[in-house]
């Protein structure tokens, strides 16, 4: 599906560079946010060039606004191509979300209604991305906090239709599944049952935060804490179905020291190695 190894990786943070180089090999791949490597030179490129020699690489875009209004930012797509040409990543992925409107970049992954209109727009955008980059991309399911009355298609059916029309793969963010399903009163195991699992090329795990509202918890995809227990259980359930898949732990805020992040990756690797069985028995 992708060239990423069916083992574990973490989101690369420059603060961890020295610790990674001085440590034994703890992960098999790193993922970077493409937008952080769009400068011309300097330390970011020196670090990534050094890591690229030893590890598989996933380039993950956060700013292309695939779910935005018709017409991708051609300049930004070209910048993504420059990053991909330079580092020849084993996978490129982006989000089912939008982040720009008009001339403004809003710096967040914003939700969209799922309709025939948005489906067509997104498929056209993905066709364009895959053509310009000359590679197949993975599309990630989002964390969402609100719903749209306009939506006529379920998220899983929407993703299925995108895969069928564009041939892209999917990045299954298990934390996002748990966050969105909790926020919208759905069963995350039902979501997983409806998810087009054969198209999954990578899995994301990450931490979320919780706010209590009168109707129940509001989960926020904060990437600033360990992976929560119910997300580990859901991940184990997924792996029980699919077997080992490239699995990435994301931790972007309140960054821990490298050994703590490496231990999260180790925990994911244990589940991959056991085919998801152990936690399934425990839960």
């Amino acid at each position: 599906m992708t060239g990423l190894p069916a083992s574990v990786g973490v989101g690369f943070k420059p603060d961890h560079f020295t610790a990674i180089r001085n440590d034994a090999r703890r992960v098999d791949f790193f993922e970077i946010h493409a937008e952080n490597y769009m400068g011309a030179g300097g330390l970011p490129h020196a670090q990534l060039t050094a890591l690229r020699d030893d590890y598989s690489l996933s380039v993950h875009g956060v700013g292309l606004s695939i779910g935005g209004q018709r017409g991708l930012d051609a300049d930004h797509l070209q910048r993504l191509k420059t990053v991909c040409d330079r580092y020849q990543p084993d996978s490129f992925s982006e989000h089912l979300a939008w982040s720009s409107h008009g001339a403004e970049y809003l710096n967040d992954l914003l939700p969209l209604p799922y309709t025939q209109e948005t489906l067509q727009t997104i498929c056209d955008h993905i066709d364009q991305v895959q053509e310009v980059l000359g590679r197949k991309m993975l599309l990630e399911n989002p964390s969402t906090y609100v719903l749209f009355e306009q939506s006529t298609i379920s998220e899983t059916d929407f993703l299925k239709a995108i895969v069928q029309r564009t041939g892209c793969g999917l990045l299954l963010d298990v934390n996002n599944v748990f966050v969105s399903c909790t926020n919208h009163g759905q069963d995350p195991y039902d979501y997983i049952a409806a998810f087009p699992m054969t198209s999954v090329g990578e899995i994301h795990l990450g931490g979320h935060s919780t706010e209590e509202l009168p109707s129940g918890p509001l989960l926020i995809d904060a990437h600033g804490s360990p992976v929560a227990d119910p997300v580990w259980s859901l991940f184990s359930h997924v792996i029980g179905q699919t077997g080992a898949l490239p699995t990435l732990v994301e931790w972007d805020n309140d960054l821990p020291d490298w050994p703590i992040l490496a231990a999260e990756a180790r925990a994911a690797a244990d589940i991959l190695a056991q085919g998801g069985a152990r936690l399934d028995l425990a839960s």
Partner: peptide
């Protein structure tokens, strides 16, 4: 058109985006 599981909380939930 923006709503939520409990529609009376739509504004509070939308605030996550404003805050982010």
């Amino acid at each position: 058109g923006i709503t939520a599981l409990d529609p009376s909380e739509a504004e509070q939930r939308f605030n996550v985006y404003r805050n982010n």
